[in-house]
Amino acid sequence: MPPVFRFAPSPNGHLHLGHAYSALLNFYRARETGGRLLLRIEDIDTTRCRPEFEAAIYEDLAWLGTSWEIPVRRQSEHLADYRAALDKLSALGLVYPAFESRAEIARLVSAREADGPWPRDPDGAPLYPGECKSLPGDARARLIASGVPYALRLDMAAACQRVAGLTWRELGEEQGGEGGIVPARPQAWGDVILARKETPTSYHLSVVVDDALQGVSEIVRGQDLFHATAVHRLLQVLLGLPEPAYRHHRLICDGEGRKLSKSSRSTGLRELRAGGASPASIRALVGLG
């Protein structure tokens, strides 16, 4: 079977040089290996994702010279797939509702830090400090029935007890980096959110379900997602999904060494195009000339 790759942007802004780099790497890997390249639109965030940004993604990627298989998978059209995965994890007793707001969580963290540093995940966010995991079932049911907003969290301790020796296969940076077997430590993320009351999925849950359903065998993505792979591998094992290989590439940063954002007009593909950039000059800018 030929390898399957994917590029999976969110239509919540215009693409920048970092997106171009990742898209081109996936396109080149598929071409070099005789594989397939899929495009996936990760549009579960209905408050930020907009049709005009999705249309711009297709336009920018075609202008770069990349091509992909159709139809394109749009996450918003497959919420039932994510709900089914969440139900499976719930049946294992690994999911619980947490009712604190973001402001309440911030206050809880602040109170705990009076006694010393509170643990944080690899992205720097504080681990969930609440106690909703210990709420009795009838109390949870009453809160849900009352209409209180909630997030569905993974009971990380219970989940990790089910999985031993968790690892992933890292193929290494595209420019000579070494690969190998990487130990996965999902517990570093604490009780991650899998869904919310108004949205039956999250990035962590939807990405592993999509990759499995689409048969993705090699995931080429940015180094900023390296540590999140531990959570994805845990969910893959719990859900009985196949294990892909991973290749985490370097990030394209701005002049001050910061990761690019979609609000950075100086590195946006549309702005660069309007200024006279060509696909060849974009490839040169990201080191693929």
Rank of each mutant, 00 (worst) to 15 (best):
D211P: 07
E77P: 03
K197L: 09
W118D: 03
R273I: 11
I41Y: 09
A158Y: 05
A98M: 04
I41R: 04
I105V: 14
H19R: 01
E218H: 15
V4A: 02
A125I: 05
G255S: 14
H249E: 15
I44W: 00
G222K: 10
S264N: 13
E32R: 11
Q236M: 11
G240Y: 01
E77N: 09
N26T: 08
L272R: 15
R258T: 02
E243M: 09
L171H: 07
R142N: 09
L285S: 15
L205F: 02
V231E: 00
R233L: 01
I219Q: 11
I44D: 03
L171M: 13
Y21D: 11
S263V: 03
T167N: 10
F99W: 12
A56R: 12
A274T: 11
R6M: 04
R36C: 00
G190H: 02
L234W: 01
S206Y: 06
I57W: 01
P279I: 14
L260P: 08
L64Q: 14
S261K: 06
R29W: 03
R250M: 08
P3L: 00
Y128R: 08
R107L: 13
Y128N: 05
S10F: 11
L213N: 13
A280V: 12
R273M: 12
S22M: 14
W118M: 06
G165H: 06
P242M: 06
I70E: 09
G116D: 07
L205W: 00
S10W: 08
R185F: 07
D123A: 10
R221N: 10
S67N: 10
G180H: 14
L17C: 08
V286G: 07
K197V: 02
